[in-house]
Design a protein around this nucleic acid. Structure first.
Lengths: 137, 137
DNA sequence: AATTAATTCTATCGATTTACTAGACTTTAG
DNA sequence: CTAAAGTCTAGTAAATCGATAGAATTAATT
């Protein structure tokens, strides 16, 4: 399941993607438009900025805007930024790999192979969902 | 990501699936064999029993055994039993559906459609992974 | 220079969940 | 009766989640 943070991030990106080119959106505007608690959204937008999905302008008349094409922002990326690994166990993860602590001597745990199959399919599906694909509903 | 409970459940089922027909496995045996904390495993086995994956014999010389074919126990079922919904949001879930609280007036939230596509693909993949498919590695 | 309006940063908080552990109780074989 | 097994109910320490609070910084306008 997605965390609220990830869900709000998607909705915020969706909001930004729907604005006119060159429009800059204040946090409060996004919060109202996408129905997200404003102070919580502040943190999320900062995370999205650190992730280089959006950029911001400070001070009066400041706000946020997309710096990555809505066609290139995938659900997989947002999931990874806010909720981490897409795989079902760390030992089956590409980006968040960690060996299992409870898999005794064997180098590969009994679940790893099957979970990597799931990961590949889920990942492929998640890379197919972009902000652009969500906008045109 | 899978919870430890779900992971341990899979490993316990895998252990049971590897035993001879008619063999009955004590909790401590499974715990040692699959490297799972025993008291924690007790709870998990009870959950698996309530889910009708295993059954048990009480008293001396008691223990647990599979009552469902290893070909019919899928990752999807175990995920649902221990970790709930497979979909990324409740509004996109089949078995754990709940409407989003933060999706204003519209009957369908902007994310729902895309997330249902993901759910269908992930679910299909997860239904393809059975205990039997994990045993023969 | 002062004001205003925006982002940014850091801290905190209550509730819930997670991963266990403890211990009493029940059941069954011998 | 006793030993050895599952069953049930609590409890608990730590982490995570979903926010909220408030001060600091930045920038445009007056």
């Amino acid at each position: 399941m997605l965390s609220h943070k990830a869900k709000y991030a998607l909705k915020a990106l969706l909001y930004l993607a729907e604005q006119d080119e060159n429009h800059i959106s204040r946090t409060v505007e996004i919060a109202d438009g996408a129905n997200i608690p404003k102070k919580f959204l502040e943190q999320i937008l900062l995370d999205l900025k650190r992730g280089r999905f959006v950029s911001s302008k400070q001070g009066k008349f400041g706000g946020y805007y997309l710096i990555k094409s809505k066609n290139d922002i995938t659900l997989a990326e947002i999931h990874r930024l806010f909720d981490g690994a897409i795989a079902l166990l760390p030992c089956a993860s590409l980006n968040f790999y960690e060996p299992c602590s409870d898999c005794k001597t064997e180098s590969e745990c009994s679940l790893r192979h099957g979970l990597m199959l799931i990961r590949d399919k889920t990942l492929k599906a998640m890379e197919g969902i972009t902000i652009a694909s969500l906008v045109k509903k």
